[in-house]
């Protein structure tokens, strides 16, 4: 029972990180059909910002990470993606690959390819004991921070005019534009939101791993794509649930697989992804608007 509860808490906290990654990727995919590989570098740049400010007062460092990553996301949108916005998805994808390659190697040039260790909020390493269950403080913070963020983004998307415009754009961009939604603004806000979410992920991820290395964001971005697709494209709650599901599956596999199969965990997770796609090609949580029309 103790083991089950601990695994469950682990699963939720890993799944929550994935869910935020997936939401950022799903948002941009929905609006502009962009599979944004560069999101992994948004996270990585956030981690490096924290690393440089490791000795500063934490709230200041966190704020700096958010500002840097949001500015980065907006700059990337303006310089790299806006000029090719109307090209086909393959071109957009290669552009995002190129941005990711650029940023990742920029970090190599500035900081070297080796991982750099540092501590974000060392206090989070402790755990709370509730009867027999030990809950790492970090997991609690992760779950609290991600649910607050998801709630905030959810309210923003539901209640504000911009948010409603973004949801409309995610469902049908062309139709939304015809109804007066401003493309530039919606996309810029989308990148801004993706930046904020990546920054939060970077803080939690840095606290979890305690290192900064140039390719560290990749795993999160890969899971983000997969989660977006199995959640149902253009369906933002679906992306979040998809992220949670992928996180939960990997933690559960880690717990139940025999030790010599554990190294193959990723293979099992991604095989499950293919299985889900085959059984539900439109995603687990299919949005009504996404049905293919002729």
């Amino acid at each position: 029972m103790t083991f089950a509860i601990q695994t469950l808490i682990d699963a939720i906290s890993v799944g929550a990180l994935y869910a935020i990654s997936a939401l950022g990727i799903g948002l941009l995919f929905g609006i502009m059909r962009l599979v944004n590989f560069a999101q992994s570098e948004f996270v990585t740049v956030g981690v490096y910002t924290l690393m440089m400010l490791a000795n500063a007062w934490f709230p200041l460092a966190a704020l700096a990470a958010v500002v840097v990553v949001v500015l980065l996301a907006l700059t990337v949108e303006r310089l790299a993606f806006r000029p090719v916005r109307n090209a086909d998805p393959a071109t957009l994808l290669i552009a995002s690959f190129a941005v990711s390659y650029f940023l990742q190697n920029g970090l190599v040039l500035l900081f070297g390819a080796r991982p750099i260790g540092f501590d974000v909020l060392p206090g989070l390493g402790q755990a709370i004991q509730v009867e027999t269950v030990r809950i790492p403080l970090l997991n609690i913070v992760t779950i609290a921070a991600t649910s607050t963020l998801l709630l905030g983004v959810g309210l923003f998307l539901r209640l504000t005019r911009t948010g409603i415009e973004m949801r409309a754009a995610a469902v049908d961009f062309r139709m939304a534009r015809l109804m007066g939604v401003k493309a530039d603004r919606v996309i810029a806000v989308g990148f801004g939101l993706a930046g904020i979410m990546s920054a939060v992920v970077s803080i939690l991820y840095a606290a979890q791993t305690g290192t900064a290395s140039p390719a560290m964001g990749l795993q999160l971005a890969l899971v983000g794509f997969v989660a977006t697709v199995i959640g149902g494209m253009g369906n933002l709650p679906g992306a979040v649930l998809g992220g949670l599901a992928v996180g939960a599956i990997s933690v559960l596999l880690q717990a139940v697989l025999p030790p010599d199969l554990r190294v193959f965990r990723e293979a099992f997770v991604y095989a499950a992804v293919i299985a889900v796609l085959l059984l539900r090609p439109q995603g687990l949580f299919r949005s009504a608007a996404e049905r293919e029309r002729v």
Partner: peptide, 21 residues
């Protein structure tokens, strides 16, 4: 059997599977 982005993501998943193995 999949179309569009779902097919692409399935190939990505395949790549990760083979790489892990």
């Amino acid at each position: 059997r999949l179309s569009g982005i779902a097919a692409s993501i399935a190939t990505l998943a395949w790549l990760v599977i083979i790489n892990t193995i």
